[in-house]
Design a protein around this nucleic acid. Structure first.
Lengths: 257, 257
DNA sequence: CGCGCGATTGAAGCGACTCAACGGCAGTGG
DNA sequence: CCACTGCCGTTGAGTCGCTTCAATCGCGCG
C-alpha cells in the first residue's frame, strides 16, 4: 500500500499548506472493502471514524418493521461513523456500493492527531462542517414537492459531486438500486422508474439502466426548482410525450404551503 | 451577567471533568436576542459559531420563489452556524422564537480554545456529533409516510428535548407557527391543523393553540411508527425450510419502500 | 377600529401509493 | 448446460391522502 500516511489523508482532505511538521509521514491505516461489504453495523460499538478514500457507500437504517430507510450515499472525502461519537453505538449501517477504501481514524487517537498536527485539526473541523452540509442535501431533496423535482435535485447533487472530483458532471453511473434511491427520496420505487422515463421523454436525460446522462443541465436545474406544474394549456395532452421532440415540461413556480 | 466563562460553557456542554487548568475563567461572550431577532442572515459572512444557552431558534432557508423552507428548530445546547464553516457564507438564517441567549465562539479562536483547553476540544467534537444527530431528526420525521405520523414523530422529538432539559416531556409549548411546523414536516399547513385535531380526537393529545399536552405517550409512540408498511425483508432470515414446518401458505412479500 | 396574520374547517381534484404482472439478468445447483 | 429462483426494473390500473382553493373566526397591534 503505497500511500497511507497522514500526508495523503491531508491531501485528500484538501489541505494545501503541507509545509508542516514531520508528522506527515505518520502512517494511517487504510481499509479495503468489496462491493456489498459492510463498513459498520447498526448498534455496533464506535471505535473509529472513517474517511472515504475511494468508492462509495450507502448509509441506511433498518426500522423495526424491516423497512430499510436510506439516509444517504457517501463518496470520496465523506466522513462516516462520526454521528455515533456522541452515542454509545452506531445509529445506522454503511455498506460499500462498489470496491472501496477508507482511512481509519481511531476515536481515541482523534484528539491526539489534532494536537500534534494542527493542520489536521483544522481540516477535521472542515470535515465536520461538510458532513453537516452533506446531511442538508437530504433536506434539499425532500423540500421538493413533486417526485420528479426530487429526483432532479438528487441527480444534480450527484452531478456536483462528480464535478468536485474532477469528473464529468454529465455522465452519472448510479451505483445504487432504484429502490435505494426511492427510499432516499421518500417515494415508491415505481415512481423512480416513471420519473426517470418522464425526464428522459422530456429530453432532460438519457437513461440506460444505471447509466444516466444529463442532456440539458440548465433545464434540469430549472425543473428541479419547480414546485408544482400548472395545468394551464392542454392538460390532457401530457400523457405521453412522443420522442422527446418539441415538448417541454415548462415548470411554473407557484406559492407553496 | 454572572456567568460568561469557559467553565459555564463547558458545563452547558455537559463536561463533568472540571478539574482542569485555570482557563475555566476565560471569559466567553454571550449574546442576547429578543423574539424575532435574527442570529445570522443567509449569505452573511461566517464569523462565529454559537451555542444556544437559553431560548430557541428557527433555522430556515428562503428559496428563490420566496418559499420559506424550515430546516430545523434549535434549543438549549444546540450549535448554530457551524455548517457554514466549510463555505464562505451562511447557507441559512436563524431567528429567535423567544427571548434567547447564545455563547459566541469566534471561528478564528475555535482552534486555539481547543488547543489550550483539551476538555473544550473534546466537548466540541461531541457537539459536532450531536449536531449531526440533530440533523438526522429531520430525516426521521420525513421517513414517516402519513402526515400524522410525521407530526407524531416531531412532537416526540420535542418531548425528548424537554426531558433532556429536565422538564416535563408531556407539556409542550410550541414556539413556532403551524406554518413553520408544516414547512419542517413537508406538508401543507392546513394538514397540521387537521392532524392535530385527529390526534386530539384519538385521545393522544390535548391541544390548545400552541399548548400541546401528550396524553398517551406510548400510543403516540406506536402511532408514530406507522412507517411504510411491508418488507418483512427476510433476507437474513431466509430459511429454505425444506419439508419445513410452518412454511407460509401465502407467497407474501414484494419489497416495498 | 380595521388590518393582517394565525388557525381552523370545508370541498374538490390530482399525484403518488398500492397492487399486480411482466421481462431481463445473475447466481445456483441438479 | 439449463431450469430455477431472486432481485431489479418497468409498466398498467385503481384508490386515497394530501394539496389546493376558499371562507370564516379570533387575536394582537398600529
Amino acid at each position: 500500500m503505497a500511500s497511507t500516511t497522514m500526508g495523503d489523508l491531508l491531501r485528500l482532505m484538501g489541505v494545501r499548506e503541507l509545509a508542516l511538521g514531520g508528522l506527515l509521514d505518520l502512517p494511517v491505516p487504510v481499509r479495503r472493502l468489496r462491493s456489498g461489504e459492510t463498513l459498520f453495523h447498526e448498534g455496533g460499538r464506535v471505535e473509529s471514524v472513517q474517511i472515504v478514500r475511494s468508492g462509495s457507500f450507502k448509509i441506511f437504517h433498518t426500522e423495526r418493521d424491516g423497512y430499510e430507510q436510506v439516509l444517504g450515499f457517501a463518496g470520496r472525502t465523506a466522513m462516516l461513523g462520526f454521528d455515533a461519537l456522541c452515542l454509545d453505538e452506531h445509529p445506522n449501517e454503511a455498506i460499500a456500493l462498489e470496491e472501496s477504501t477508507t482511512f481509519v481514524l481511531l476515536v481515541r487517537d482523534l484528539f491526539a492527531y489534532s494536537e500534534r498536527t494542527p493542520a489536521f485539526g483544522r481540516a477535521l473541523h472542515m470535515l465536520f462542517s461538510s458532513a453537516l452540509a452533506r446531511q442538508s442535501e437530504h433536506t434539499d431533496v425532500m423540500a421538493a414537492v413533486s417526485s420528479e423535482a426530487r429526483l432532479a435535485r438528487f441527480l444534480l447533487q450527484l452531478s456536483r459531486r462528480m464535478a468536485a472530483d474532477g469528473q464529468s458532471p454529465r455522465r452519472l453511473l448510479l451505483r445504487m438500486t432504484r429502490r435505494d434511491i426511492a427510499s432516499y427520496l421518500g417515494v415508491a420505487h415505481e415512481t423512480i422508474s416513471r420519473s426517470l422515463k418522464m425526464m428522459a421523454d422530456w429530453g432532460l436525460l438519457d437513461v440506460d439502466n444505471r447509466e444516466v446522462e444529463i442532456l440539458d443541465i440548465d433545464r434540469l436545474q430549472a425543473f428541479s426548482q419547480g414546485a408544482r406544474r400548472q395545468t394551464d394549456d392542454g392538460s390532457g395532452e401530457r400523457r405521453k410525450a412522443r420522442g422527446g421532440v418539441g415538448w417541454r415540461p415548462v415548470p411554473v413556480p407557484c406559492a407553496r404551503p
